[in-house]
Structure formats: structure tokens, C-alpha cells
């Protein structure tokens, strides 16, 4: 077997790390901090509240809303700031806006941004909902 020193891969690890922390995230180099760049104390997602139950917007395909839901976190000024994933929020609202009319099959639902917040040291989150739109929806 050809003697290849461990120094070679060790050196390449060093080069890659030095480049990664220089550019942060530029293909194909990344710090891969994956939300670890700062401590998060809140989370949020857009969903559908039917009575006391939370459901995914994808469980409904037809919608009639009093006003289009706003994916912007500023739509919830009392709760801002909260962690949110822009792409997921936009996808949820785009799904609602693209749906057909529920005709007479619709049931009353609320599209809400559900917010979890960790403000105590016991590790448990408080939960609140911010109303984005009242709608009728059907599967």
C-alpha cells in the first residue's frame, strides 16, 4: 500500500475550515450552523385552527377567506419577534390562495400563526395563536 500520510487529509480539513469561516456560506463551503448561529427562544408556523385542534393547511384544498392571510410576521405585531421559516410560511399561504371555492362544503376555520415561546427556565414553551384570516375551508 502506498504510504499516504494522515497529514494530507488533516491539511485539507484545515484549509476547508479556514475557507468556510471566511465565506460563511458560499457554494460549496458552509459553516452549516443550521439555526445554531444564535439561540432561539421562539418558534412559529402557520396552520389551521378548527375548534381547539390545529391542522395543516394542506389538509384543505378549497378556501373562502374574508381577507387573504398575510404570511408576514408583522401581521402579528403583538407577538413579534418570533422565529419563522419564510419559505414554509409562504408555501402555506400560497396553498390557501391557490385553492378553489369550497361552495357549500366549507366549515368555519381560522388560519393562525401558532407561536411557541420559551420565557422561563423550566424548558417549557408557552403557546399562543395570532389570527391571520377567518375562512371557510373544505378538503
Amino acid at each position: 500500500m502506498t504510504d499516504l500520510s494522515r497529514a494530507l487529509p488533516a491539511a485539507i480539513v484545515g484549509i476547508q475550515l479556514a475557507v468556510v469561516f471566511g465565506v460563511a456560506n458560499l457554494y460549496p463551503f458552509s459553516t452549516f450552523e443550521m439555526y445554531g448561529g444564535t439561540r432561539l427562544t421562539s418558534a412559529s408556523r402557520i396552520g389551521v385552527r378548527v375548534g381547539d385542534e390545529m391542522r395543516e393547511v394542506a389538509e384543505f384544498s378549497r378556501w373562502r377567506c374574508q381577507a387573504p392571510p398575510d404570511p408576514s410576521p408583522q401581521a402579528c405585531p403583538r407577538e413579534w419577534p418570533m422565529q419563522h421559516i419564510e419559505a414554509i410560511d409562504r408555501e402555506a399561504v400560497a396553498w390557501v390562495n391557490a385553492g378553489g371555492d369550497p361552495a357549500s362544503d366549507g366549515v368555519p376555520v381560522e388560519i393562525v400563526r401558532r407561536i411557541w415561546r420559551w420565557e422561563t427556565n423550566d424548558g417549557r414553551a408557552s403557546v399562543s395563536d395570532c389570527l391571520l384570516a377567518r375562512c371557510e375551508a373544505a378538503p
Binding site: L8, P9, A10, I12, V13, Q16, L17, V20, F21, S30, T31, F32, E33, M34, G36, G37, T38, R39
Partner: peptide, 19 residues
């Protein structure tokens, strides 16, 4: 494999530095 290894080491390091 060194590049793959460095990617995970960067992930751990950035979490420790960030949070």
C-alpha cells in the same frame, strides 16, 4: 473525506461559537 469531515466540524464549531 477530509472535506466531508470538515463540514461536520464546521457545523459543531459554528453552533458553539454562535450559541
Amino acid at each position: 473525506v477530509a472535506a466531508l469531515s470538515a463540514s461536520y466540524l464546521a457545523a459543531a464549531t459554528s453552533k458553539m461559537v454562535g450559541s
